[in-house]
Write a protein that binds this DNA or RNA. Structure first.
Lengths: 193, 193
DNA sequence: GTACTTGGTAAACAGATGTTGACTTAAAAA
DNA sequence: TTTTTAAGTCAACATCTGTTTACCAAGTAC
């Protein structure tokens, strides 16, 4: 089957549609406030297909989470510290204007499921460590790890506050607006003396 | 009725019990994931009393929100900038060890209700403004207001990450651990040149 | 003690929600 | 064309959730 002739019935395509719709809903409204019927309607497919392709609502949530984790890893993978403020600013500010979901915000959503929580924790931990190391600190420096995690927390907090409350001027600040303060923040927390 | 001889049937007392239980649940699990039966069980009272004393689940949530807003206003009311890091650190770190709810985290919870969202937004806005002014900036400085709101976002992000994910060392950092990085963060974002 | 007010309880309700199984139909294989 | 496989639909289910109503009982006033 050539990629140019799309089947009218395409399992992978509808799976993708469901994943994207779920990503948006879960990120914006959280796990509990989102119904499978909402997601299915957004995707324009039948509700029963969620159970078919993802086994359950929780399965779909986990799929969203891993997809989001991959995206974050891919986007901010090997950014040097000097470019971290821009990377974070783009991560925070970019999606809001493009209608895409905030990957960082999804990381704060919880289904109460244990395996989902582990996925989330793994990313947060490794990302914090990467940040600390990128700043030029030894891997086992607990104090700097704490500071790196505070940077992470700040980034997620900003992303969340932007989407949840229309707090101005934060809510509609552009990536360019966010870079200078983020640079100050990151420098203050991670810069070597 | 003397305060020393508690009535076995005390409306204000059970109202308070419900409020405290709800505060804890809403803060920890969010609005949608919390059921009125959970709250009633925690408080050790009948479910129907929620509708009686707070009209509805949303009414109870709003009561929690205003109570939390008052608490935040009372605690961090007129703190000068020099003592802000300690105040925030205590706000973030204190409750976690005492089993009390994180007022900052509740501010990120949403019921989808409009009036609740306005309460939340009002506090965030005024708090951001107060922070900017406390740092010695004119009230209408948009750029500094943005920076103040980023401080606010960082604080809430930290509080949220501490409660939601067991991200170490952030999750079990004491108030004393948090003060130095928070001071660096606040100084970097708000200090006059 | 009796009447009355009020705090509390229990059961039932209507609607929503996640999930399942039987059925239909489009596409591919024969 | 006929058969077979897979994608999608539909309706029902069991359960959960917020709310209401009717009822009970403790405390107060008479």
């Amino acid at each position: 089957m050539a990629a140019t002739s799309p089947r009218r019935r395409d399992a992978t395509k509808t799976r993708q549609l469901l994943l994207e719709a779920a990503l948006q809903r879960f990120t914006r409204d959280g796990y509990a406030a989102t119904t499978v019927r909402d997601i299915a309607d957004d995707a324009g497919v039948n509700v029963a297909l969620i159970s078919r392709y993802f086994k359950s609502k929780e399965g779909l949530f986990e799929a969203c989470l891993t997809s989001s984790v991959d995206e974050v890893r891919r986007t901010n993978g090997d950014t040097p510290l000097s470019r971290t403020p821009e990377a974070i600013a783009r991560q925070i500010a970019g999606p809001c204007t493009e209608g895409l979901p905030h990957h960082l915000v999804l990381l704060l959503r919880s289904s109460g499921d244990e395996s989902a929580d582990r996925i989330r924790l793994d990313l947060l931990r490794s990302y914090g460590q990467r940040l600390s190391v990128a700043a030029g600190w030894p891997e086992d420096d607990e104090e700097m790890l704490l500071r790196a995690q505070i940077v992470l927390a700040a980034a997620t907090g900003i992303a969340l506050l932007r989407t949840k409350s229309g707090l101005e001027p934060l809510a509609s600040a552009t990536a360019e607006d966010l870079v200078p303060p983020l640079r100050d923040l990151i420098d203050a927390l991670l810069k070597r003396p």
